[in-house]
Simulated scan of single mutants.
Amino acid sequence: MKKIYFLASALLAVTTLKAQTTVDFEDLTLDPESYYNGSDEAGGFTSGGVTFENEYNTAWGSWNGFSYSNITDNTTTGYGNQYSAIPGSGADNSEIYAVYHSGDTMHFPDSHARISSIDITNTTYAYYSMKDGDAFAKEFGSPNDASGADDGTNGEDFFNIVIYNHDATGAKTDSITFYLADFRFSDDNDDYIIDTWTPVDLTAFTDINYLTFSFNSSDVGEFGLNTPTYFALDNIKYENTTGLTKNEIAQFSLYPNPATSTLNISGDAGEYKIFNTNGSIVKSFTHNGLSTIDISSLNSGIYIVKVSTGNSFGTQKLIIR
């Protein structure tokens, strides 16, 4: 069995936005060691101005979408402990956090919202399922499935979520992939399952109306993913941007675009960041009117360049060949 390490390096930079709201779920109430799963058939709940949709099946007593919890039990394995986050508390040792399972959306009060970050971690249920395996899901790092048969992965397992940005028309305009577990490294010591609250940088998203989520795993069976499709979330930091004037939209130019080894930037001065398609920052720098940036270390592909001037924001697509 491979030794599991947890990525401190997965902590991504966070850009602070003006008039920022942090959804920390502490405006909700729960009895000690309890949870809300939509059994009242309300269809969801609201915290910090954001609506979290939920669908509850009364016939089966099951749910999908969002729930919220203050469960601290991070040692009990299995489906019966599906409302627990593996750190044993909310982010920053707070009490209440949310749990996402399978489907439904996260709606913002403004159809042009911007998000700086969301704190994400594994649930206890999913964590131990990947770490040790169970009756349905494999032990990550093993070449065998839950039944003991060779599954063809050679132990190169992974579990990720894809976060999709939807605009006011409902169209998907961007996405970011975040790995809750990854065992595909050439050095087994780099393999990990997330067990801490990890900020995921979403500043590459613009004009956000709502977010949706999907799961991918190397452990797939006849009926879909065997890995439990859950994650926990907290500290959603966002800003409503309706009413931004033209003066609040930063103006800058990139050339050449497509680029190869160097990139010229002209326009508004500020803090610039280049993101890859996974939402990770691959380069950051301060620009003061005209800059030439060395991008020779970046692989060919599509990137997003984002600037913050303190009172304005701007985003452009960059192609590197």
Rank of each mutant, 00 (worst) to 15 (best):
N54L: 02
L30F: 06
W60N: 15
G78H: 08
L28E: 01
N70Y: 00
L28M: 05
F66M: 07
D27T: 10
A42I: 02
S34F: 06
S62L: 13
A42C: 10
T75D: 03
N93I: 10
N64P: 08
F52L: 11
E33R: 09
V50A: 15
D92C: 12
I86K: 08
T46D: 11
Y79P: 14
P32K: 04
N93F: 10
D31F: 07
V50K: 09
G38F: 00
Y36G: 04
G38Q: 00
T51D: 05
T58A: 12
S84Y: 06
N54G: 03
G78F: 08
D40P: 12
V50H: 10
G43Y: 13
E53A: 08
E26H: 09
N81F: 05
N57Y: 05
S89M: 05
G78K: 12
N64H: 14
G38L: 08
F45G: 05
D31P: 11
N93M: 12
Y36W: 15
G90C: 05
Q82I: 03
F45D: 00
W63K: 00
D31E: 14
N81T: 07
E53M: 11
D73Q: 06
P32C: 06
N70Q: 02
T72N: 05
D73W: 11
T29A: 15
T75N: 10
Y36E: 07
S84I: 00
P87K: 10
D40Q: 04
S39I: 02
Y83W: 13
P32W: 09
G78P: 13
G78I: 02
G49H: 04
A59M: 10
F52V: 02
D40Y: 08
L30W: 06
Y56M: 07
T77Y: 14
Q82A: 13
D27W: 03
Y83N: 07
N74T: 06
D73K: 05
A42E: 04
N93W: 06
D27Y: 03
G88A: 03
Q82K: 11
P87D: 04
G90S: 11
G38D: 00
E41M: 09
E41I: 04
N57Q: 15
A91T: 07
A91M: 03
G80N: 12
S69E: 00
E55L: 15
T75W: 11
E41C: 08
W63S: 02
T51L: 10
G44K: 04
D73N: 14
N74D: 14
Q82P: 11
A59I: 03
S47D: 01
G44P: 01
Y36A: 10
F25A: 00
V50G: 11
D27N: 13
L28P: 04
E33F: 11
N93D: 14
T76M: 12
S47G: 12
G88Y: 02
G88E: 00
D40A: 05
E53T: 13
N37F: 10
L28N: 05
W63V: 07
T46A: 08
G65Y: 01
E41R: 13
G48A: 06
S69G: 02
T58D: 13
S67D: 03
N81H: 03
G78L: 07
E53F: 10
